[in-house]
Design a protein around this nucleic acid. Sequence first.
DNA 1: CGTGTGACGCGAG
DNA 2: CCTCGCGCCACAC
Length: 105
Amino acid sequence: MTKKPVGFKALVEDLVSTIPPGKLMTYGQIAALCGHPLAARQVGGIAHFGNPDLPWQRVVNKRGGLASGFPGGKTGHKQQLEAEGFYVTEDFKVDIEEYIWWPNP
DNA sequence: CGTGTGACGCGAG
DNA sequence: CCTCGCGCCACAC
């Protein structure tokens, strides 16, 4: 059997890569789906040092606030989201209720 | 196996 | 909706 690389980090990266365009997921949501509902902080750490090819811009905190460690800060993250077709306020927030997505609808 | 850390979460006001 | 403060987990060394 093909052994999948088990590990919180690998699971998060795999899950983030499944986020469809035009949708968002929260750090706590991803952590919970990976089996660690309270490890949302870890998800952020993985996002920073994880695979840069993944759509991390589709991952935001539960308040819809953008990430701070993004290249360019929240401004850089805002530009990325707008490029994806999201609407971002000047306060660097998105309508989480409008864009939130779950892998099991 | 101890310590520090973080792109967070939640409760209370 | 906001801010303040503590707790949480996995990972690096």
